[in-house]
């Protein structure tokens, strides 16, 4: 896989969304920032593909892709 997936790719979307929201439960601003950073690093490593990571950054930033 060398292209960023932007079509729906998660079967139980509501479950995963709720899991993300729950993961931040009870964290203060600093902890939230640190948690996000760890999560991004873990997911980036799982993806492992520089082009996909770059493309994801562009999409997150709101750039045209």
């Amino acid at each position: 896989m060398s292209k960023l997936v932007l079509d729906p790719n998660i079967v139980h979307a509501d479950e995963v969304y709720q899991t993300l929201v729950d993961a931040y439960e009870g964290l203060d601003a600093g902890e939230r920032e640190a948690f996000s950073a760890r999560l991004i690093l873990i997911l980036a490593n799982h993806i492992g593909n520089e082009q996909v990571i770059r493309a994801a950054i562009d999409v997150a930033r709101g750039d045209d892709v």
């Binding site: 920032e33 640190a34 950073a37 760890r38 991004i40 690093l41 873990i42 490593n45």
Partner: peptide, 15 residues
């Protein structure tokens, strides 16, 4: 924040 996240993760995770 990213730097500290790396250091924290590096302690346990090879990646």
């Amino acid at each position: 924040v990213l730097r500290d996240a790396v250091l924290q993760l590096a302690e346990q995770h090879a990646f």
